[in-house]
Amino acid sequence: MSWEPTLAHFLILSAAVFSIGLVGVMIRRNAIIVFMSIELMLNSVNLSFIAFARYRFEMDGHVFAFFVMAVAAAEAAVALAIVIHVFRHKRSVSVDELADLKY
């Protein structure tokens, strides 16, 4: 019996990966892992775009995915710089250290 993945399978996978990313941002303490989780969220959206684009036989979604990749790269550059910036001050990349700004 042959089995082919349909649109729904890709969407469920995409939603699952997105949720993993969102949970990762919330519960992980290491700033680099938090950043990786954000990338996971962006890329799961890419998967959705590609799945929809293939389903509809059109190019808009593919194009959108490329733009999202470019944006993710720009975000990565800024994010790693910020992580280094924080590390210089705190000698740690744990987000728990970032608690000066509350009173």
Binding site: F18, G21, L22, V25, A31, V34, F35, I38, M41, L42, V45, E75, V78, A79, I82, V83, H85, V86, R88, H89, K90, V95, L98, D100, L101
Partner: peptide, 18 residues
Amino acid sequence: RGAEASMKYFILGSISAA
């Protein structure tokens, strides 16, 4: 404090963008 502000803004801003 600037480093902290930047980090917080980045993480929350990126989540909202995602």
